[in-house]
Design a protein around this nucleic acid. Structure first.
Lengths: 244, 244
DNA sequence: CCAATCAGTGAATCTAATTCAAGATTGAAA
DNA sequence: TTTCAATCTTGAATTAGATTCACTGATTGG
């Protein structure tokens, strides 16, 4: 009989409902004042029920991040399927991040918190596992592109592994997200759009690796054109405010 | 009369005592189980007294980070005074970070937490201000080096401001610290020493900027030699385990 | 139809941060 | 040396909010 299956489905629906409620509350009042009681209220269930799904508040935050990670990964997968040079695809990963963060401004804020010793340690082991697994494809996609570049002679690893190269780009990206969310920094430094700047840094780094064809870093128009082109070709529906 | 001054001094000593106690407890049991009552106990004062110094637990964590930041800045200042090419000095900033993190392994772990919306928002405004100010010199030193490079024709900014260039390197560094502390990532990716890898990425990035003299990225021995040389010349007393 | 099991509830519990009324200490003035 | 207002320190009491669990009503299989 399908009873069990139906139960399972309802359980998952309820979980989604809790996560949605949590997202709304975070959006409305910020992560700081998120309360379990409020989440349960908003979802129209008892607190006890909420705890049937999440081992702790931190666990719930990881669950939110897992959801986002899936969407994030999908964008990356689209890049992986895109017919373009490895270098353009690698760059497109950065553009994907830029668009993703624009659609999910809370994601990196929560993500930053969630990967903190305190929060990570207070979540349940299975949830941690789930989050790590949800992010796995990202690494695979990036190293895949790097391998393509190597095998088509566009890139020489010079003793590094593809993973090590990807760590560099990943660090650059994560670091930018961090600085964006760290109060005041980007303002004080009068950077314009930090994510456009990230795109430039990615190009710089790729040039540093000698990843061919090299980009002309002083050509701002070319950079914008490429971002625009990728936005249109790979993420047409995310567009509308592609520039700047 | 000096009564007021003495009081002031004693107050500061007590604050340092609290911070030391907090550090010990974090070292012993981790950030996760840090408790205000325990800190007070360890410092041999009442909880109320602890709250005379820190507006909240989060405030205390910022205070810890401010202390560390001062040490951090000192290392950077030594680099700024070092007689060497701008490129070597810029690279030495990375080495300083590597040595600093080795001496203060908790710093970036706490720092990561502290710059989180939740913690940042729960600290007092003056403390936030203090933390931002404590970090100010870092930006100044880095942009100073960049300006030196520009005026000696080693580097062309190609439309970026010195601040924007520094953001790139800073992001790379922060991102690496983050990944190091994010459970499992560095292990899964079988990176060796993540900070040595950061050094390589910094060289890559500097090459990407076309910052002369360009480094030969495939020359591992040269990289190690440079790290070694900087450790000895600029940070002789931090040495002892300079390599690897 | 009934007993057994299961899912859902929310008031009660627990943990730890934070406060504040009361007591102790200080030091300038008499 | 004594006094006393001002200042500092204290830790028990309060508070906030996460988490639990004994209870209740629903569901299922016999």
């Amino acid at each position: 009989m399908g009873t069990k299956e139906r139960r399972q489905r309802q359980f998952e629906e309820r979980e989604a409902r809790f996560l949605k409620a949590a997202r709304e509350l975070i959006h409305e009042n910020g992560l700081l004042s998120l309360q379990m009681t409020r989440i349960a209220e908003r979802a129209e269930y008892a607190v006890g029920t909420l705890y049937l799904h999440f081992a702790s508040k931190e666990d719930l935050l990881l669950a939110l991040t897992v959801e986002d990670a899936r969407i994030h990964v999908e964008l990356f997968q689209r890049v992986a399927r895109w017919q373009a040079s490895p270098r353009d695809r690698m760059f497109a990963i950065g553009v994907a991040d830029m668009l993703f963060v624009r659609r999910h401004p809370e994601h990196f804020r929560i993500g930053q918190y969630v990967f903190t010793e305190v929060v990570w340690g207070a979540a349940s082991a299975p949830r941690r596992q789930a989050l790590l697994e949800a992010n796995d494809p990202i690494g695979e996609i990036v190293t895949g592109i790097i391998n393509d570049a190597v095998s088509s002679n566009k890139l020489q690893l010079k003793g590094l592994t593809p993973e090590q190269v990807s760590i560099g780009l990943w660090s650059l990206t994560i670091g930018t997200h961090n600085l964006v969310h760290a109060e005041g920094v980007m303002e004080d430094f009068n950077v314009g759009n930090p994510y456009r700047l990230l795109c430039r840094h990615i190009q710089t780094m790729l040039n540093g690796y000698g990843w061919k064809p090299l980009a002309d870093l002083s050509d701002d128009a070319a950079l914008d054109a490429l971002i625009e082109r990728i936005s249109n070709e790979v993420f047409p529906e995310l567009c509308g405010d592609c520039e700047a």
